[in-house]
Amino acid sequence: MKEDFYDILGIDKSASAAEIKKAYRKRAIEHHPDKNPGDTSAEEKFKKAAEAYEILSDPNKKGKYDQYGHQAFGGGGGGFGGGMNMDDIFSQFGDIFGGGGGGGGFGGGGRRMVKGSNLRIRVKLTLEEIANGVEKKIKVKRKKVAEGTTYDTCRTCNGSGQVVRIQNTILGRMQTAATCTACGGAGQTVDKKPSNADEQGMLATEETVSIKIPAGVVDGMQLKVSGKGNDAPGNGISGDLLVAIEEIPHDNLQREGDNLHYDMYISFSEAVLGTSKEIETVTGKVRIPIESGVQSGKILRLRRKGIPSINGYGTGDLLVHVNVWTPKTLTKEQKEFFEKMSDDSHFEPKPEKGDKSFFEKVKDMFS
């Protein structure tokens, strides 16, 4: 089981943004590769701390993690668990180590790594796909560095990605650093590029991306596929592909959290005599018995026939709502039969103590 992000940083869920940053800096410096050369265990802890900080430092990601756990990000955490290297971490969090806003402040290589822009797509899923999990192959239009493109060190910033300015003020000499406008912070400019590439050496391409969607996702949830966004010029990091989930309404089933609801209609004679009915579930059809004398409004619970919990807390139930259909038109013989039965004691309403009222059933359903 994946380790809890709060445990990795040694903080509580109530920790403030400043406390989260302080805890990450402490862990990162403690396990930094420069301080632990050749120690693979320390490097792994360093990556875990960076992964935890990436999620917990972002209010939106933190909210989703608090609600859904690791499953909110496709079963993993952030991007680092999915194959990002040490340069990736330095490029995004180099400023944590006091390195002047770039990756090179504390062993990051001396140059700010640029990350390509993220892409966003929406994926529609049926209730069956949500219940069972699915792998989708989606065609994505993304920018990639064109084949044959080469880059030179930027002459304006000498490859640092930043331009340092010194100003004389009444308080003394002030030094400021800003992103280099000549290279956009990449530290590199285009040397050669094919004629069909843009000014940054990029080319628009279409790529089929495989997206593994875990069971139990909810409408509006956003998953991330690391490195499948737009490329960055030079030797930068590719952006991410953000996948928004859209649930397609089911014809017969209604979702309520991890539980499902199904309205089953039976005839008056079936309610009197009893029967069995085949109904639809997200894992296939099942046949359930209906006892004789069943009352309209009765709820039958099929255990673990609902949606798996995104947090791994088991599977919801399928609640079958029995509705006795009263005929609106009768033949002369049928009408005569019911007229004879109107005074029969078997047809008089006799609710038992175990028969709950409508309001009690609603209360039970939401409790």
Results as ranks from 00 to 15, higher is better:
Gln162Lys: 15
Glu360His: 06
Phe347Met: 15
Leu273Ile: 04
Gly354Lys: 13
Ala204Cys: 05
Val272Trp: 06
Ala271Asn: 08
Glu278Ile: 03
Asn196His: 09
His321Leu: 10
Gly187Asn: 05
Tyr65Lys: 13
Asp317Met: 10
Gly172Met: 03
Ala232Met: 12
Val217Asp: 02
Asp317Trp: 03
Gly79Tyr: 00
Ala177Leu: 06
Lys193Cys: 03
Glu256Thr: 03
Lys35Gln: 01
Tyr68Asp: 10
Lys212Phe: 01
Glu333Ile: 10
Gly185Ala: 00
Phe268Cys: 05
Val163Phe: 00
Arg173Val: 07
Val362Asp: 12
Glu44Trp: 11
Lys124Met: 05
Gln175Ile: 11
Pro214Thr: 07
Ala177Thr: 14
Asn235Lys: 10
Gln167Thr: 14
Gly109Tyr: 03
Gly63Cys: 04
Thr150Asp: 14
Val362Cys: 04
Asn230Val: 08
Met1Glu: 12
Pro308Trp: 08
Ala182Glu: 09
Gly185Gln: 06
Thr208His: 13
Val145His: 00
Lys305Val: 00
Gly109Phe: 09
Phe337Met: 08
Asp4Pro: 15
Thr169Ala: 08
Ser16Val: 02
Thr156Leu: 05
Pro194Thr: 10
Ala244Gly: 09
Glu199Thr: 09
Glu336Lys: 14
Leu9Tyr: 09
Arg142Glu: 07
Glu246Trp: 05
Ser16Tyr: 03
Lys13Leu: 04
Lys363Met: 09
Thr169Asn: 05
Gln200Pro: 01
Leu318Ala: 06
Val190Lys: 04
Ile279Cys: 13
Val134Gln: 08
Lys144His: 05
Asn158Pro: 01
Asp4Leu: 09
Gly229Asn: 13
Ile138Arg: 08
Ile170Trp: 02
Leu9Gln: 10
Gly284Leu: 04
Gly38Ser: 04
Ser14Trp: 00
Leu260Lys: 02
Met365Arg: 11
Ile299Ser: 06
Val140Asn: 13
Arg25Gln: 12
Leu56Ser: 06
Ile288Ala: 02
Lys64Glu: 12
Asn323His: 10
Asp231Arg: 07
Asn36Leu: 04
Met1Ala: 14
Ser160Asn: 08
Glu360Cys: 02
Val272Leu: 13
Met84Thr: 06
Tyr313Ala: 14
Gln188Tyr: 05
Phe93Gln: 14
Lys64Cys: 11
Leu56Val: 04
Leu56Phe: 07
Asp39Ser: 02
Phe359Asn: 15
Ile310Gly: 03
Gly161Pro: 06
His250Arg: 07
Asp240Asn: 11
Thr176Asp: 01
Ser91Arg: 08
Ser14Gln: 15
Gly77Phe: 06
Gly159Tyr: 00
Gly274Gln: 07
Lys137Ile: 12
Lys141Val: 07
Lys363Ala: 12
Ile310Asn: 12
Val163Ser: 00
Gly77Glu: 14
Asp364Gly: 11
Lys193Tyr: 08
Gly105Phe: 02
Tyr262Ala: 03
Pro249Ser: 10
Lys61Ser: 15
Val218Gln: 13
Ala271Trp: 01
Ile213Arg: 02
Ala178Pro: 00
